[in-house]
Design a binder for these strands. Structure first.
Lengths: 355, 355
DNA sequence: GTGGTTGGGGAAAACGTTTACCGTGCAAGT
DNA sequence: ACTTGCACGGTAAACGTTTTCCCCAACCAC
């Protein structure tokens, strides 16, 4: 089987204590000579500490848990990637658990992780506050990332939605638009509230007063973007720009504009949010706001690592800013844009009514 | 801290050996009375075996590893979900590692997992055959799922690409089409080879001879679907149907058809492959072949569990069949279809040139 | 009555680490 | 010369399980 610390110690002619000391580079001094000898020998024999034995002794496992409601979501996987990339450098690996929006499953998962001497947990887009006490009791550090409900003050990292909506709105203002519609997500998501706020504040800063007739409410889905755009259009026939709370609704909105005989971006400029895959593929390709999921994962992991190292976390609530991704749907100067997936040399974008 | 087997044994007035025996329901008999007493007490005290200690003793960890090149891919996450769902019922959890197409990272990951007494590994969409010997040496079972290169015979589960292409082609034939174009993926992927084969065999079975002028080669991306469709169209002006090797190329193809003044599905029917998110969102929504990723993950996990249980695996190469997802782009009877994301009551689908 | 079997249970070794506790031997300070 | 301190290293306990070996009582067959 695998080579143990005992065998390594015997081979080096020292005690296992010495080996352990050089490997864990602790305070206890070891002569430079034996140090390099053991290190060389360890490398040669391919020695790898048995993690189970170490965990048993130290009650730490070099493992962090990621609890999410469903790993099968584009949001979640990018955050996981960010977390992994960061903790990996510190020698940690990740176990991922899908809790399926079921508090009982989540609770069970937490207990399981605790019995595995997990070092820390990040809750991605979820938290049912089940077994919160369990974690506190075993004082296992935990962090939230992209959590939906912000009712309590917790260590968490979230996207800066206000800033993102500001970016989108300001971009449209910069392009000369003044009547800018907004299709919001469901109000119970703070993302919706914050994005609406960013939209309003940016307009206000420009001296444009808020007009409720320019705002519709969707449910993040394509069909609601379609309906929302029609609603806004009906109240504002002279609309020149539309900002959608996410890319799916932006797609629906563009379908609606097309059906209304309006061209994008020529007649109406459109900006989405999230930078989902569809934004790249759509024609016209969508200008949108990126959700900085990878960076959020990294930030959450850094907070967790700090906690594990006994440090104070940098801040209680960390907000990560996304950025504007300029593509075709906003009608901005092509020089600013990334090339579209399919450029049509002869014809206007597919959504234009020229056919 | 957590309650140990010692405390549980003391509370029950028995030895730890007895407790261990009832908990692991092994051959050694225990009287029914003490059995229920211990079980009740364990439940009451919230006893959970320390996994590290158990691993140390048994060299098993109730953990299986998933190695993939990049967790941030729609394909991968659905397979992971399938794996998780299956192994969870057997008490296993999953650690997932992204190897980034780097054999060295993969090798390192394998060693890490071995030192953690991992019970089994599934390689998802990857394998650099690094450290294959390591696994064999420690006789850790492993399985491949959705592996790209099939040069060697290994325990693996893959989608039945021939069947999927057959489904698509047959569907178009059933709708009355005879001149059916095909945009293939890059030849070095067996998925491309198999899909092409399914296409050819289905045509042959119908007595239609294979025409190379109806086949183009893409690279899975949107732009290549655009180019491929144009190429086929130029050689076959009377084309009535197009089958694309994936949904992205199907999207590109539909853009090309639109630009050529052709309506989908009225003039040309289109079928994609993979059932990616875009297939649902696109207008017209795409008829496509599902990639049975969840089922593949489940199957792979079942094979692994069988191996872990000492059983013989059911088969060496398991192929999972996808199914036809009928939507708008093929022009089939609407009664057969799932409702599109956005139905337009007044106008034809967006891709039609009526504008 | 003797020997064998069987149901039930305990003692203790072992798994591979980390680490608290002790020894040396040597240099420096008094 | 006698402490004191430090650099270096060994011994052994401990972590919480599983499992081997053993024991005891009861029962059965002869």
């Amino acid at each position: 089987m695998a080579v143990t610390i005992r065998e390594l110690a015997d081979a080096a002619g020292v005690s296992i204590a010495t080996v352990s000391r050089v490997l864990n580079h602790k305070s206890h001094p070891v002569s430079e000579e034996t140090r390099v000898r053991i290190l060389a020998l360890a490398d040669e024999l391919g020695y790898r500490p048995n993690v189970a034995a170490r965990s048993l002794r130290t009650d730490r496992s070099s493992t962090i848990g990621i609890i999410t409601d469903n790993i099968d979501s584009p949001h979640t996987t990018m955050m996981i990637r960010g977390i992994q990339d960061t903790v990996k450098q510190a020698g940690y690996i990740c176990v991922v658990i899908s809790a399926d929006w079921d508090p009982e499953v989540e609770r069970e998962a937490i207990h399981d992780l605790v019995s595995r001497s997990i070092d820390g947990i990040v809750f991605a887009e979820t938290w049912h506050r089940s077994a919160n006490e369990t974690l506190a009791l075993n004082n296992i550090p935990f962090v939230f990332v992209h959590r939906q409900y912000a009712s309590e003050s917790r260590l968490s990292v979230t996207p800066d939605e206000v800033y993102g909506a500001h970016l989108a709105t300001q971009h449209l203002l910069n392009l000369g638009h003044r009547r800018i519609g907004y299709i919001n997500g469901p109000e119970q998501f703070w993302a919706s509230a914050d994005r609406l706020r960013g939209y309003r504040e940016t307009l206000a800063a420009q001296g444009i007063e808020y007009d409720p007739a320019l705002v519709a409410r969707g449910d993040w889905q394509v069909a609601s973007g379609y309906a929302g755009a029609n609603q806004i259009l009906q109240a504002n026939p002279r609309l020149t720009a539309l900002f959608a709370g996410n890319d799916l609704m932006a797609a629906g909105a563009m379908y609606a504009l097309f059906d209304a005989g309006l061209r994008v971006p020529d007649d109406v400029a459109v900006v989405g949010y999230d930078n989902r895959e569809i934004a790249r593929i759509f024609r016209p390709s969508m200008t949108t706001i990126t959700l900085p999921l990878h960076e959020m994962g990294q930030a959450a992991a850094q907070v967790l690592l700090a906690l594990l190292g006994g440090e104070e976390p940098p801040a209680c609530e960390i907000k990560i800013q996304g950025r504007l991704m300029v593509r075709e749907s906003c009608g901005a100067d092509p020089a600013l844009r990334e090339p579209p997936m399919v450029r049509n040399p002869r014809r206007p974008p597919i959504l234009s009514p020229t056919g």
